[in-house]
Every structure is written in C-alpha cells, then in structure tokens.
Design a protein around this nucleic acid. Structure first.
Length: 355
DNA sequence: AATTCGGGGAG
DNA sequence: CTCCCAGAATT
C-alpha cells in the first residue's frame, strides 16, 4: 500500500466525494437552508445524538415554525417543548436570542461572526456552523467530531480537550477548508465522524482517508484521540488526633505497602465527628493507652491525591496513662525532632498547629 | 482551566 | 458500569 503523507496535503475533495455518496438525510437539511432552521438544529445537537434530536426538531418547527412564532411564545411554553431533551439553558438562551434577533436585527440572523457570537447560546462552534451552512461563509466549525477526526488523521497524541490543541486543530481545519464549500465540508465532517471515524472502534476498513491517516498507518487509530478529563475523586473523611505526652507526639508508621507506604502519620481513622473520635480512642486502647480527645477540632485540612481526597479533621488529645505496646509502628517523637521522620502526605504540616 | 448543565445509547 | 455525544456559560 502506498502511504501518503498528510502534511500540506489537500484532502477535502476526498471527504467531499465520500459525503456525496453517504450524506445522511436529516430533517434540517432541506434546501434552501434556512438560518433559523440551521440554528435550531445546531443548538439541539449540542452534546446530543442525532436520533434524540430528530423528533424534537420536527415538533419544534411545527410549534414554532418561524422566529416570529418563537419570539412571541411564553418562556414556559418554550421550555415545555424542550422538555426531555436536557441542557435546558439551551432553550432559554435560544428563546432570548431569537427575541433579540427580532428586535435588534429586524428578524434577520446576523451574518457576521462578531454579531452572531453575541447572541446567547451561540459559541465558537455554533457561530461557524450557522455562518458556513446557512450563509455559505468560509468558517470552521470545530466540534467533538472534528477534534477526533483531525487527532487521528494528523496523529495528534495530545489532549484534544485542552484549549491549546483545540486552537491548533482549528488552524488545521482552516487550512483544509475548501473555498466556497465550507458548509458542505463541515457537514461532511459531522457525518464522517458519526458513521466512519466513530469514537471507540473506527471503521478504518471503509475509510476514504485510510492511506493518509497517521493514526491508522501507525496502527494507533483506537488510541486516538486522547481525552483527559478530571474525573472527580472520591472524598475520604478521616479523623486525626495529635496526642502529646510531655514533649513528644505519638506517631504511627503506615504499612510497608500501599498509599504513602512506611511513612509516619498522626493516629487517624476513617470517619468524622464523635464516631471518628471514638474510633481513634479505641484504636489507641488496642495499642495500650488511654487518651482524652478534645471535643472541638483544632483544624481541618484537605489533601488531594491523584485518585482520592482526604478531608482531615484534626483534634488535640492527651495521653492519660497506659503503656505503649512495643513495636516498630508506634513511637513517641520529640516535638523538636519533627523533621527527622518522613511524614505521610499532609501530616508533617500539621506539626505547625501545635508548635 | 475547571465545573456545571441532562439524557440516552453504545460497548 | 463508563464513555461519549453537532458546546456554552460561568467561575
């Protein structure tokens, strides 16, 4: 097979040829393209699958066939028609923006990027989509499909969700935009991304760009694109007690394996409030001591790991008696020697609380 | 740059 | 169950 290089190459004709054969017949693609229709479709399609949008779109144009009709509607009625489609700000913004078009632009959807971008709910992508599809302007419309396709074709192994990569891909799209056919190209990318260059398992065997796709040629089409999301880490409440006996703190060495292995910490247990304090008291009883724990926390601290977050509630406590079982995992640490042990995560910083 | 905002279908 | 989808607004 001949491997073609993608840099500097104009491949939009190949995609347009594919589009001519495989273009989806969608209700908002009636000719001539109406700016209002394109607008409604683009808003509904934000983060929403085509099949979910289809019935809503048809109903919408039935209930609000024109911008005049939509502008005249009550907000509750507008929201009612959107009910079930999700992201309800889209409906509120669309309603407000259409009203603005009626009053401020004489009922004509603005034809410049600058003006159309001021309308509520119309961001970078939607502005480009409306201007290119409805008005035939040479504008890019970079959405999730485009980011995925370009990341693969150009072999971009970086986070497509970062603004930097988005900007770079936008430049690549602009360089590829066929003059006078930007709208068609943008729609071709949508269909291509929905039918061939799909997220998980792309259909490379039928792809018209396979010979020039860097990801495919490297056998990495399933590894791209890369999307790094901040998955919310679980929060773990822990109760920490700083126990003093004369000039020393009672500290504990963590297990030799696992999180913060073998590092030293103040006595602590999962949980918070009275239950947490009671759990610490019992823990120390097992070790051989009776302790009294203050009823009010000394401080709270949060510490973020890659996979979890500790929310620490720190109490002061006093050693009331007993003998510490001999062993290597507990010891009394002279206060002035606090820098001599390796502290587990945030525990070292707690020494500042009771200096 | 990170969060929030819905709902549904695919894997 | 997780991921992802024709994103935008807010912080």
């Amino acid at each position: 097979m001949v491997i073609e290089t993608i840099n500097e190459r104009q491949w939009s004709p190949r995609l347009l040829a594919w589009f001519a054969q495989h273009r989806r017949d969608l209700p908002w693609r009636t000719e001539p393209r109406d700016p209002y229709h394109v607008w409604v479709a683009e808003i509904m399609l934000q983060q929403t699958k085509v099949e979910a949008v289809r019935p809503y779109y048809e109903n919408w144009l039935h209930v609000f066939p024109t911008m005049e009709a939509l502008a005249a509607a009550e907000p509750d009625e507008v929201l009612r028609q959107w009910q079930g489609l999700g992201y309800y700000s889209r409906a509120r913004n669309l309603h407000a923006a259409v009203r603005e078009v009626m009053t401020k632009y004489g009922g004509t959807v603005p034809q410049t990027a600058k003006e159309i971008r001021t309308l509520k709910g119309i961001g970078e992508y939607t502005a480009g989509a409306i201007l290119s599809i409805a008005y035939g302007q040479d504008e890019t419309a970079v959405d999730g499909n485009v980011l995925r396709i370009f990341a693969r074709v150009y072999g971009i192994a970086r986070n497509i969700l970062s603004s930097r990569v988005k900007k770079e891909i936008t430049q690549l799209v602009a360089a590829q935009l066929p003059t006078g056919k930007a709208g068609m190209f943008n729609e071709a990318l949508m269909d291509f991304g929905a039918m061939v260059c799909i997220p998980k398992t792309p259909h490379c065997e039928v792809c018209p760009l396979m010979t020039m796709c860097r990801a495919y040629c490297a056998g990495r089409e399933k590894e791209l694109p890369i999307r790094v999301t901040r998955k919310k880490v679980p929060v773990e409440n822990r109760t920490v007690v700083m126990i003093r006996k004369q000039g020393a703190w009672l500290i504990h060495r963590r297990p030799p394996t696992g999180l913060l292995a073998s590092m030293w910490e103040f006595p602590n247990v999962p949980g918070k409030g009275p239950d947490g304090r009671e759990a610490v008291r019992q823990l120390l009883a097992q070790v051989g001591g009776q302790v009294a724990i203050e009823s009010h926390p000394l401080a709270t601290r949060e510490h973020v790991f890659s996979h979890k977050k500790w929310r620490l509630t720190i109490y002061a406590g006093t050693w009331c008696g007993g003998t510490l079982l001999s062993g290597k995992e507990w010891q009394w640490l002279p206060i002035r020697a606090y820098t001599t042990v390796p502290w587990a995560g945030p525990h070292g910083k707690l020494t500042a609380l009771e200096a």
